[in-house]
Amino acid sequence: MIEGVSIYEILTLTTTVFFIGVYGFVTRKNLMAMLISIELILNSAAINFVVVNKYLFPAKMDGDIFSIFIIAIAAGETALALAIIINLYRLIMSVKTKDLETMKH
């Protein structure tokens, strides 16, 4: 609970962050930028968990634990994604999405 800040303001913030992430994921041409966008989406979700837990069910810890899980998974995912991106870069010297359309052929 933060004094003077209601749940609505925080949820507005997380929703905004979420859609910024979605927008970034759909529009960015760069794999790194897409990865960052995914981080934004995950973070907004993690904040949501914490906030809802804190404001609505202060006696419980479930939301906090979920957010820790999300952070852990996000870390793993980022490591994996970075590994893929680096390998890809070594292969085709590019991290642009338009260079990665060869798989459909």
């Binding site: 994921f25 759909v26 529009t27 960015r28 897409m34 999405t97 359309e101 798989m103 459909k104």
Partner: peptide
């Protein structure tokens, strides 16, 4: 069916 993940994400969203 472009094969671009971003397009699919767009449709999904």
């Amino acid at each position: 069916q472009s094969g671009r993940v971003q397009d699919y994400a767009m449709y999904f969203v």
